[in-house]
């Protein structure tokens, strides 16, 4: 009965709120998470150490400063925020969008609290020659990267104010060409040795540590020796486009169910989604089904 009701629901364009689907999986209930809201009292005892996400008010009461579950390590109490911006770490692979061209640097949106900086001295110039950056280079900065351009970069260092300094001195980094960028929570990106994946279906996937995901539509092995500055703007073939669209819908579905994104989970989801057509993957029921099947394969 429920099954038939569900399939019936799929056919409607406009759904009712009463049929809303809970995308989260029932997790093991034995470890009860206590959820704190900002300003909520955690403890009145003074013998605790205050960690991240907490503060002590004038009465000496320990309170939460962010919304999230409590974490306790011996005497150290911290509250892990439920939703947060990207906290950069050196060596992270990030996807960013240029927001501003300044003197000797580009400002990049990387989903961090402050815009990151990409210094002119930390990019590979087209042609690959290594030299000191001259005034001419500075004047033609917008020719290399302009506002709105997407780049893939690595976190080189963290400035004193917490903003990130990026670099693209390795050939795999640089400007991104045709494809789709998605935004998910940075917590959903699984930390791995490599964040560049050439999937078996031919697409190239970059899972940025900052929660930005790139699905590249360049299926042929592109020569990246120029740092991506010359772009191929020719038409992408239809089957490649379908792969990209399917990947996009799969990744968004996984993110809705809070499944960690890695090349394995994305590939599993892609394979499990093959029984649906691409547009069906936008429906909540189908998204949940694919996420469940992926989860089952992941725990095996």
């Amino acid at each position: 009965m429920i099954k038939s009701n569900k399939t019936e629901q799929c056919n409607y364009l406009i759904r009712l709120a009463t049929d809303r689907i809970d995308h989260s999986f029932p997790c093991n209930q034995d470890q009860q998470l206590i959820f704190f809201t900002p300003g909520e009292e955690i403890s009145t005892q003074p013998d605790f150490l205050k960690g991240h996400g907490t503060y002590v008010d004038q009465q000496g009461i320990l309170r939460a400063s962010v919304a999230g579950p409590l974490e306790k390590v011996n005497k150290l109490i911290s509250v892990k925020p439920y939703k947060t911006r990207y906290q950069g770490e050196i060596g992270d692979v990030v996807i960013g969008r240029i927001t501003e061209v300044q003197r000797k640097r580009w400002k990049v949106d990387t989903n961090a609290k402050l815009d990151s900086a990409l210094l002119l001295s930390s990019v590979n110039l087209p042609g690959g020659e290594l030299r000191r950056r001259s005034v001419e280079d500075e004047q033609s900065m917008r020719r290399y990267l302009q506002e709105g351009d997407l780049i893939c970069a690595e976190v080189q260092s963290i400035f004193a104010d917490g903003s990130l300094s990026l670099h693209t001195r390795v050939l795999k980094y640089g400007k991104l060409s045709q494809g789709i960028m998605l935004k998910v929570s940075p917590a959903l990106i699984k930390r791995q040795k490599t964040h560049f994946h050439n999937l078996t279906n031919g697409a190239c996937l970059i899972l940025g540590n900052n929660g930005y995901v790139w699905i590249g539509a360049n299926f042929t092995d592109v020569d990246r020796s120029d740092g991506g500055f010359t772009q191929d703007l020719s038409r992408v073939r239809q089957e490649n486009r379908e792969v990209c669209a399917r990947l996009r819908n799969c990744i968004l579905g996984l993110a809705k169910s809070n499944i960690l994104l890695s090349d394995t989970s994305v590939t599993y989801a892609y394979e499990e989604s093959m029984k649906y057509n691409i547009r069906e993957l936008l429906q909540p029921e189908v998204q949940l089904d694919v996420a469940l099947l992926t989860h089952q394969r992941l725990v095996l």
């Binding site: 991104l176 060409s177 045709q178 772009q231």
Partner: peptide
Amino acid sequence: IPLSLAEKTF
């Protein structure tokens, strides 16, 4: 949201 030329083309 500013988009890059390549994204717009796609």
